[in-house]
Design a binder for these strands. Structure first.
Lengths: 260, 260
DNA sequence: ATGAGCTTACTGGTCAGGCCAGTCACAACG
DNA sequence: CGTTGTGACTGGCCTGACCAGTAAGCTCAT
C-alpha cells in the first residue's frame, strides 16, 4: 500500500441531509431571513427532485433544531424562525442528564460565568450602561411588592444589562442556558420556595453590592460578590460533601498575597 | 373571563415528536444504553402504531441530535450512540454564525473558561492529579519533535488533566466546543501556521508556568497565566479595536489594591 | 357598496404499499 | 475445513392517496 495517501472513512450522505445542508446554509448566508417562508413541501419536492417523505425528513430535522416551523394549513409554507438559543439549551440539558453532570458543577459554572460577566462589566462599562443597570435595580426594588414573577423579570433585566456592558453575549447565553438547566432540576424538589419577601430583599441587596463594585470599576470585587451571591442562594441544593469546588470559587482570600 | 385560571398556548404535538420523546426518555432513563440496538424500523412501526414515514421522521431527528445512528442493511437495527458533545458544538457553531458572535467574544470566553479551570485545578488538585499533569507536560515536551499533530494531542491531554482536577466537566466541554468554533473560523484564514517548532516551545513554556502555579496551589496566578497564554496565542486574529475586552481579562494589576 | 358567510384550492400530517441496494447469518459446496 | 453462494433481513427512497386544517376569494344579503 502506498504510504503517502491518507484515506478518510467515507459515509454515505443521505438525501435528506443534503437538503438540510442546503436550507441551513441558505439561512446562515442570509439568503433566507427570519420571517420569510420556505416553498411548500410539494414545491420543495420538485425543486430538490426528492420525494415528499425525504423532504419532510429534512424539514423535521430543521424544525427540531429550531430553524423553521411548519404549521398545518399555512398557505405560505414553513416559516424561517429567528435564531434562539433554545437548541443550545436542549443540548445543554441533555449533557446534564446524560453525562450526569452534578448540581455542584452547574452552580459552579454559573458562578464562573456570572462572576466573569460582572468583572468585565466593571472594567468596560460606559456611563450610559451604568445608569441602565441602576434603572433595572430600581425596578427590582419596586417589584418586590409585585411578587416573585415581577421580581424575577427585573432580575433578568439586570443581568441582561450587565451582559451588554460586558461586551460578551456568549457569557449571557450560556448563563441563561445553565440557569434553565438548574431550574429544571430543582423545580422537582421545590416549587419556588424563594417566594418570600425577605429572600427578595436579600437578593436585591446583593445586586446593589455588585452594582456598587461595577460603579467603582472594581472588577475583582464585582466578580467576588457575584459568586458569593450565587453561592448563598444555591448552596442549599448542593450536598455538603460536594461544596468544595463551590467554596474554591468564593474564597479569594489569597488574592492579596500572590502578587509581588 | 375568570381571573384565576391561567391558560398556556397549546400547540398540536406531532406524532413523530411523541416517538422522539419516548425514545429520548428511554435513553436518558438508562433503559437504552449506548451500544444497544433499537428494533428495526418496521418493528417500531408495529410497536408505536405509526406508519413508517412517521417513525423515520423520528429516527432522523434523533440521528441529527447524535443520539442514534442507522446503517443501511444492519440487521440489528439503529444503534444507540454514546453521548457526545457534537450536538452542542453544532449548536454553538450556529450561535456563532447566526448571532454574529465575534472572534473577540470567542477568545474572551475561552480565556474565562480556561482560566477558571486552572484556578479550580490549583485549589482542588490532589497529588495524583498533579503528577498526571506533569506527565502530560513531559509528553508534550517530547512531542515537539514529532510534529504539530502529536503536540496538539499532548496539549489536549494536559487540558483534560486540568479539567479532571478542576472537578468540573462542564468547563472542559464548553471549552472544547468554543475551541472547535474558533478553529473552524480561523482555519479559513490560516492553514495551521502554528506549525513551527518555536511556537510549540513557547506554548510548552506557558503550560509549564501554569503547571507551576497549580503545583503551588496559587489559583489566581494559574488563572492569570492561562488567560495570558491564550491572549498571546490568539490576539493576532482579533482586530485591534476589539481587543479591549480581552485585555480586560489579562490586566489583573488592580488585584493587590482592592482588598482591605 | 359593504359586510358576513360559504366555497374552494391550497397547506401540512399521516398512511399503505412497494422497489432497491446493502448487509449478514448460514448452509451448501469445494 | 475454508469458500462461496444465497436468501432473509436491513434501511433509503419513492408513489399515490386521504384527511383535517387554513385562508383567500367569491357570493349574497343587507
Amino acid at each position: 500500500m502506498s504510504d503517502g495517501a491518507q484515506f478518510r472513512q467515507v459515509s454515505p450522505v443521505r438525501l435528506y441531509q443534503r437538503i438540510v445542508e442546503q436550507i441551513e446554509q441558505a439561512i446562515v448566508r442570509g439568503d433566507l431571513k427570519p420571517g420569510q417562508r420556505l416553498p411548500s413541501e410539494r414545491e420543495l419536492v420538485t425543486q430538490f427532485g426528492a420525494s415528499r417523505p425525504t423532504v419532510r425528513e429534512a424539514l423535521r430535522v430543521l424544525e427540531s433544531s429550531g430553524l423553521v416551523r411548519s404549521r398545518p394549513g399555512d398557505p405560505n409554507g414553513p416559516e424561517i424562525l429567528p435564531f434562539s438559543p433554545a437548541g443550545l439549551t436542549k443540548e445543554m440539558t441533555r449533557l446534564v442528564q446524560f453525562d450526569n453532570v452534578s448540581m455542584a458543577e452547574l452552580i459552579s459554572f454559573r458562578m464562573i460565568l456570572d462572576g466573569s460577566a460582572s468583572l468585565l462589566a466593571a472594567r468596560l462599562r460606559s456611563e450610559e450602561e451604568l445608569s441602565a443597570m441602576e434603572r433595572t435595580i430600581a425596578v427590582m426594588s419596586e417589584a418586590i411588592e409585585a411578587g416573585y414573577a415581577e421580581f424575577s423579570k427585573a432580575d433578568m433585566a439586570f443581568h441582561e444589562a450587565v451582559a451588554v456592558a460586558s461586551r460578551n453575549s456568549l457569557i449571557e447565553v450560556c448563563n441563561q442556558v445553565v440557569r434553565g438547566a438548574v431550574l429544571s432540576l430543582i423545580s422537582d424538589k421545590v416549587a419556588h420556595a424563594g417566594n418570600s419577601t425577605a429572600l427578595m430583599r436579600k437578593s436585591l441587596h446583593h445586586h446593589q453590592e455588585v452594582l456598587e463594585a461595577i460603579r467603582l470599576r472594581d472588577g475583582q470585587a464585582a466578580a467576588r460578590i457575584s459568586r458569593r451571591t450565587l453561592f448563598d442562594y444555591y448552596a442549599g441544593y448542593v450536598p455538603e460533601n460536594e461544596q468544595g469546588p463551590l467554596l474554591a470559587l468564593v474564597d479569594d482570600e489569597e488574592t492579596s498575597t500572590t502578587r509581588p
